[in-house]
Amino acid sequence: MSSTSHSALPQALASEGLPAHVEVRPLRHPGPTNTEPKAVRIAIITLALAFLALCIALPVVSVFYEAFKRGWLAYVTALAEPDALSAIRLTLLVAAISVIANVTFGLIAAWAIAKFEFPGRSLLITLIDLPFSVSPVVAGLVYVLLFGSQGLFAAYLQAWDIKIIFALPGIVLATLFVTFPFVARELIPLMQEQGTAEEEAAVSLGASGLSTFFRVTLPNVKWALLYGVLLCNARAMGEFGAVSVVSGHVRGLTNTMPLHIEILYNEYQFVASFAVASLLALLALVTLVAKTLLEARLAEDAS
């Protein structure tokens, strides 16, 4: 980075007529302290890019390639299929519910945790993060153990004729579990960092609790909130393991997009499978672009 200024220095000294015994050796000058020789740099960059291209970029490219392998018509036909459409509808519904629930919960939890001191606070943060470290399959299983036909609440559910497992509520619950930390964990550190001075100022100027929240706190975290919503939405739409366990795979009824992809793939309908997958891949890419744009805004919030 600063190699030009470094190598210019000995020459500048030489041209100013230094005494002859000062040995100026521009060719053997050691180079900047904070980086590696050029060959090493190029090798590291090449290795990193090759690894990323092979492991990360190529799979995404192949999704779109496979989806359009048989042309536009096959692609559109696959998506217009009624089962595909109902999978898309169900996925959107589940994602909407979990985003709304997580935004509400995330704001409430972040307020309690970031604006107040109380014992057990760090334990609470750990518990909120807990779903991140639970296998999605286990996340689905625990709801089967609660609400399934052999579950702890099976008797009550049967008595009131409520169906949770192999139905929409089960899918929503499993999705809520795996997306649980997404919004809260974006908000908590930012709100902790922002402290309580602005809220105190608002209250000292006569604002009520709610108007302090809506006029001061919420605008200050809006980008982080949006960021959390993006991540939460991407995960909710793409969740496979947990939903797979509780859904029952009823075509046109309890199949979300990822489950539909699996069924089509296992039936060797590869183009149709990749067509649905390409929608989710597109969602992932849009999420990443939006996330990258948001990160600049986030830095603003934190400043």
Binding site: A48, L49, L52, I56, A57, L58, P59, V60, S62, V63, E66, P136, L231, A234, M237, G238, E239, F240, G241, M257, P258, L259, I261, E262, Y265, F270, S273, F274, A277, L280, A281, L283, A284, L285, T287, L288, V289, K291, T292
Partner: peptide
């Protein structure tokens, strides 16, 4: 761009990654 690509495995649904890797 390369920096943004790192997050693809976070954002790409696992089932999509699964069938893509398999076909590759």
């Amino acid at each position: 761009v390369v920096d943004a690509i790192i997050d693809i495995p976070f954002a790409l649904p696992t089932a999509v990654a699964g069938i893509a890797l398999t076909s590759l």
